[in-house]
Design a binder for these strands. Structure first.
Length: 576
DNA sequence: GCCGTTTTCGGCCCGACTGTTTTCAGTCG
């Protein structure tokens, strides 16, 4: 019986929702939510802490009561308090909370007054006009809810991949920049923090005085707008045809820094900063930093941090996962940037499932200014992609040798992405692996083993001295597939013992190793390879997605091997 | 329910917009 951090987090989040519907103390609700968030981000398995008898109240946001609940959950697999709440409040009400404009209070009213528990019952009540007669509801609310019910996939918790938002984000930004009176357009929110997925896009605009109305009118007229959610003098919101929600705020130049800070978030980071402000007798809102009603900062973000006695914190770090303390103690990392990258160590060509030839990939990489690349085709087990067997690989190695002779300005390393088989064996014999420059090992099949078996499998693969880089370690596909059940902390420690490098796969729906484990790997001292896993020349540009995730994981240039010159990089690969 | 260089009790971040209200609650970020 294994209880994952994310299961405990989910249980606490559920408790928070149920308590909210019940109208419980909002601060207690917040305590459960905060605990859920902390558990979600933690890399150390709480289950292990319980078994080791560790003091759970040392975890920020976990006190005596929640520590007891966690302990009981780990030991019995049950959470009595949650079960009790679920017996009092129908769980289907949580579904109703997912409908925009329906929060805990109004769901409670609907339930209490009309006995409604499900989406179907809600729909029926609207059709008979019962909702609009409720206190606090009217014609408009009824219509809005009805509208939301007709587009069920557009739930308020739907999040899009960062990379999928990027195109509309920049075209929207460009459009706004061209509008009369507009002086500056900035993107904020989780988009600016580089979060893997984005729930909505926040745009801030500075405009000349008197142009506010014009800007708002332009905003809702943007060509991709499907629906206007709200429209005020300083704040409006629309939904694009892609279902992405976009919020616009018009801010004063003198408040630009505090507004950027406020709307970049995260919420947890903002709360931490404001708490700090309150302790120092300041007040922070989106308009500035105030001391006894007098504004003392706010025009720039760094001015805001400075007023709090902090170093500037990069947006990627703003998750309240230690960055505030680090900023105070002047030990923030100097984050890696895209220009630090000298090569790409994972890519495919037309020889297996890539779309561009070896020569095209090499030329494209050289045009990016890279010093080296590694060609890492699939091995035979990945038959769907035309994976190579030993003789196929040897032939291709000769092709790469020939290409290296022809091309100037870049070195092509001969590699493989060898499949890690269910028992932990590698899919190709050592006799051929030893003749390669670089060996990436990845799991593609049987991703649903129990945690112990999956962990043992990968450690066993790392026992093979030829495996130098562990590829996409969790196998997650954002919005599509959960990560494998695997003990990543043990994997990282095992990698450290064996001098194995861990990959941060930059595919926008992978971003695997996830950022919190990037941070752990750096702390443990396991170098990371940020690789694109490109299947085309265009895919090579995905490096920037990987770098964003690396920055979210607090990584510096020193933590990443492909920032090093070729000889130094190969020198960091495990000897075999 | 958590937390403490003000506190072990009494606080807990802050504001815009909407709709339904006669002065504000609910939702959202």
């Amino acid at each position: 019986m294994t209880v994952h951090n994310r299961e405990i987090a989910a249980a606490f989040a559920r408790i928070a929702d149920l308590l909210e519907i019940r109208g419980d103390n909002p601060f207690r609700v917040r305590a459960y939510r905060e605990a859920a968030r902390v558990l979600e981000d933690m890399t150390e398995p709480v289950e292990r802490m319980v078994k080791d008898g560790a003091d759970l109240t040392r975890i920020k946001g976990i006190g005596k009561d929640l520590a007891e609940k966690i302990k009981a959950f780990v030991e019995t697999g049950r959470l009595e308090y949650l079960e009790k709440l679920e017996s009092e409040i129908p769980a289907s009400l949580l579904e109703l909370m997912k409908i925009p404009d329906l929060g805990p209070r109004r769901v409670a009213v609907i339930h209490k007054e009309l006995g409604i528990e499900t989406v179907e019952e809600l729909r029926a009540a609207i059709e008979t006009g019962k909702i609009s007669s409720l206190k606090g509801f009217g014609e408009k609310s009824e219509q809005k809810i009805f509208h939301a019910l007709s587009e069920i996939p557009n739930k308020k918790n739907h999040r899009m991949l960062l990379a999928d938002v990027a195109a509309s984000a920049s075209s929207f930004q460009k459009y706004l920049e061209e509008q009369p009176g507009v002086e500056r357009v900035s993107l904020a929110g989780s988009y600016r923090r580089g979060k893997e997925t984005v729930g909505d896009l926040d745009i801030l605009v500075i405009c000349r005085e008197g142009f506010e109305e014009t800007v708002m009118a332009s905003f809702v007229r943007f060509g991709e707008v499907a629906r206007v959610l709200s429209r005020g003098t300083t704040k409006s919101a629309v939904v694009l045809r892609s279902t992405l929600q976009v919020d616009l705020r018009i801010v004063e130049r003198s408040s630009y820094g505090s507004a950027m800070h406020y709307f970049t978030g995260s919420r947890a980071h903002n709360i931490a900063i404001r708490k700090l402000a309150v302790q120092n007798k300041y007040k922070i809102n989106e308009y500035g930093v105030f001391e006894e009603g007098k504004k003392i900062a706010g025009e720039t973000e760094s001015g805001l941090y400075e007023a709090m006695g902090l170093r500037y914190i990069a947006p990627e770090l703003r998750e309240n996962l230690g960055e505030v303390e680090a900023a105070r103690e002047n030990r923030l990392p100097r984050l890696i940037g895209i220009s630090d990258i000298r090569g790409d160590l994972h890519m495919h060509t037309t020889r297996t499932d890539g779309r561009n030839t070896l020569a095209e990939m090499a030329a494209a990489a050289r045009d990016l200014g890279y010093e080296y690349i590694a060609i890492t085709e699939h091995s035979r087990k990945v038959a769907m992609a035309g994976g190579l067997d030993e003789s196929g690989l040897r032939q291709y190695m000769a092709v790469i040798d020939a290409e290296n002779e022809k091309i100037d300005g870049i070195t092509i390393l001969k590699g493989i992405e060898v499949d890690i088989l269910p028992g932990g064996e590698l899919d190709l014999p050592d006799s051929v692996l030893r003749d390669l420059d670089i060996v990436v090992g990845s799991v593609h099949y049987q991703q649903r083993f129990p945690v112990r078996q999956q962990t043992e499998r990968v450690i066993r693969a790392m026992d093979n001295p030829h495996l130098q880089i562990l590829g996409h370690p969790t196998g997650r596909l954002l919005n599509r597939r959960e990560p494998m059940d695997i003990d990543l902390e043990r994997i990282i420690e095992a990698a450290k013992e064996r001098d194995v490098i861990i990959e941060l796969n930059a595919q926008p729906d992978r971003l695997d190793l996830p950022h919190n484990y990037c941070k752990l790997a750096a702390e443990i001292g396991v170098p990371i390879a940020v690789s694109t896993d490109a299947h085309s020349t265009e895919n090579l540009l995905r490096m920037k997605n990987g770098i964003t995730e690396a920055r979210r994981g607090w990584l510096t240039r020193q933590d990443v091997i492909n920032t090093r010159p070729l000889a130094e990089m190969t020198g960091m690969l495990r000897r075999r």
